[in-house]
Design a protein around this nucleic acid. Sequence first.
DNA 1: TCATTATGCAACTATATGGTTGCATGTCAA
DNA 2: TTGACATGCAACCATATAGTTGCATAATGA
Lengths: 108, 108
Amino acid sequence: MDELDAVFRALADGSRRELLDRLHARNGQTLNELCTGLVMSRQAVTKHLAILEGANLVATYWRGREKLHFLNPVPIHAISERWIDKYEHGRLRLLAELKKNFEEDSDG
Amino acid sequence: MDELDAVFRALADGSRRELLDRLHARNGQTLNELCTGLVMSRQAVTKHLAILEGANLVATYWRGREKLHFLNPVPIHAISERWIDKYEHGRLRLLAELKKNFEEDSDG
DNA sequence: TCATTATGCAACTATATGGTTGCATGTCAA
DNA sequence: TTGACATGCAACCATATAGTTGCATAATGA
């Protein structure tokens, strides 16, 4: 369960989700490439990427002096399967409960 | 997109995910019921529930002096559809890219 | 060789976060 | 009516987080 926690925490930040989106759009980018167009400093991006790496969402390897970043979709698949699906299954039932509750509420 | 951010942030904390799990197990619990068995104070639970409410993950209504909490599955469905699915679709391709990259790496 | 480029490391800062405690308010039931 | 119960509100605290700046290191290429 601790792996899930790292992933959820990593995904909590919008800048990190944007970095993932950029890698999703074009995989294997260098740090500098990922920095272009962002308002924050390179160091800030480095830190975000380190957190994504720590959550196994990004894998890296060195090509000369460049560090290439690759998206690893496995942890996202994991939270989808192990956590989100649980809520999706009972979704219509839960919605019905909510609705019923609000109806009772407005009835008095 | 700001709604997604609130949901991701709300889900980042393990205590909050546990509260959602408890409501998923039994919907409509009062604050006191949700507190039982947890190590933190009632006030801490209140704050967590407020954050979940702020992200629309939990809906509440009053019955006398008791506050009932209901799970709202819609935001979880939303992040699943609007964010996670995007990564799930290209998942095998992304994995293949990762694998290929590591093979090239070990080749030299 | 040497300047340039790509990145890392460390120290520092401001604010967000998760938690606490104490007291107030409103509802229920004897 | 009054005490107990369920919850809210506010102040406070320690730590985590997101960001910065400055300097160091290593690869590239002219």
